[in-house]
Design a protein around this nucleic acid. Sequence first.
DNA 1: TCGGGGTTGGAGAGCGCTTTCCGAGTGTTA
DNA 2: TAACACTCGGAAAGCGCTCTCCAACCCCGA
Lengths: 344, 344
Amino acid sequence: MRTERLPTLEDVARIAGVSRATVSRVINGIRNVDPQLHEVVWDAVGRTGYVPNRLARSLVTRRTGTVALVVSDSESHDDDPFMSRFFADPYFGRVVGGLMSVLRRRGVQLALQIVGTDDGRKRLVGDLRNGQADGAIVLSLPAVDPLPRMLTEGGVPAVLIGRPAEPVPIDYVDLANDTGAALAAEHLLARDCQRIGMISGPADVPASSDRVAGFRRALARRGHGWVPIESGNFTRDSGEAAMRALLAGHPHLDGVFVANDLMALGALAVLREAGRRVPEDVAVVGFDDSSAAVAASPALTTVRHPLEDMAAEAARLLLARIDDPGMRVSSVIYEPALVERESA
Amino acid sequence: MRTERLPTLEDVARIAGVSRATVSRVINGIRNVDPQLHEVVWDAVGRTGYVPNRLARSLVTRRTGTVALVVSDSESHDDDPFMSRFFADPYFGRVVGGLMSVLRRRGVQLALQIVGTDDGRKRLVGDLRNGQADGAIVLSLPAVDPLPRMLTEGGVPAVLIGRPAEPVPIDYVDLANDTGAALAAEHLLARDCQRIGMISGPADVPASSDRVAGFRRALARRGHGWVPIESGNFTRDSGEAAMRALLAGHPHLDGVFVANDLMALGALAVLREAGRRVPEDVAVVGFDDSSAAVAASPALTTVRHPLEDMAAEAARLLLARIDDPGMRVSSVIYEPALVERESA
DNA sequence: TCGGGGTTGGAGAGCGCTTTCCGAGTGTTA
DNA sequence: TAACACTCGGAAAGCGCTCTCCAACCCCGA
């Protein structure tokens, strides 16, 4: 039962007939301890079933062996349909998987934190400064988010996944979203598409605006000075709506780049409904190479987003910064690649 | 910078001109404190920017305000392709979303823990008993897992998601998998399918064997004494393989129940490849109602698995047990429902 | 005026651990 | 043999907080 007191260092020391300090030294492998005592101590540890208390240890060492995964949401009502959607999206899971792949083997724990209000952010930073965790990986959802700056100002080691909207001296990993979009543009051009459109994400999210910019630039370089764009919010439904609008305004469209796979799914449905064959009548290129891309029919040609690798790199960066807070601020940009399937 | 010492209770007390105890009482709202002092203290808190140190507090209160989400894996090699697949699967995210929906508003944190070895399990239980977290939500993947028993024996409040393979006195939430499978069977029969097959999950996982049993029983009750079954391991690829095998042995199949949506996606691909129309030639029913179901084409008729609700209930159960460890052990079984779309 | 009950603030003892400081013991060199 | 440098174990001071005592005080009725 929970009630019975667990063995402490003190207990082990008593049984081993040494001092608390010695037991601590043996357990942490710090300094040389006489091999005989060494054995006696481990024996006592085994007999008592002693397990060090992490809390107590952290209190004095100022190290917790935990990093926080912070999801920074915009002002969200307490019961929050968006959040559940966010978690169900493969995006979240891929990030967690990538993080865990490096944290796990270093024995570091991951604690999930969600903040939706400025008050929450303030409390979070306070807790982190107090050593609640050794550092933070930040997934920032709002277009403009004060959290990254608050973290650097608080001296909390942190790494963003995705470039911050406004410049802040903080480590981050990101994808070359513009290059990815250019890849999509060139693929459509190579297929000889003439009337090309795009479905974008929200304009104020950096990842989204970069995709628009990259796409536009690549097309412009090849003589397509103007591209019709409809925007959605990265959900399937918004993809449907945007495709409908695009089709209404430009019925002769023969190619479309959709800024994420989920919206592309919606777009495919609308195109099918409208009697357009994909890719024969309209070629479709998605973005992310999520599991949805291969589930779609026709399977989606899409831009691969190596999210797991990026998350893993973010974890490595964070651990490095925790070890050496003076490290130069750095960012790592991943190059996307086009994955050709059936839709374009 | 991290180096500058953060204000402590002591500092606040000094500034407010009272004792540490008084500040503590004001902050925790415990006992009456003279309204004047009350104000002075809060004022000092504001001026210093004091934030209580959770670690120190937890050390003495024996409460952390954190619950662990434990993913118990079977012996896994350190670099583990399976785990990343697991996280990318919507299953994980849906559970996290469900848990957070109740934990968040209670101000409880979630810490992610992965254990793959018995040694890891032992350490985990030790840490939990030491107050690393107040309790645990357990996602047990191996068919037979010692962890649930270890937790109850260690007196750690814990709730499983999914029935334990062997009986253990522990709280859990589960889905009536057999009923869900029966729903699928009846739907196929109602469509007048005559030659029905099934693609199951691994035989030793309770959720999987329950689905097989429920499906068989329901068909048997309607005169179908024997059903061809191929098994996969819940991945898309294994669904493809199983469908191929099924089709090879039973080319005249006109209905198939697939034990999860991901495998159903694979099955659909194989059927299309084989020139079978769905649902005209072969009706397909999936299981889970994951996001894959609506992305599929034709959209998947499937059995809804209210995972978010179950996870939320698990969180509630856990919090209740933490509050009252003497509480009677209970389990909550959710009823599935058939979601009819295009594939059957 | 005095005693008793009820408040309220402060002193201080921990929670379980690490780590500095010190002194005792050992071996090495002159 | 003395002087020195090392090595290694123990005592004890915290880490930042909570909470039990206890003393001081107030108000009231007798």
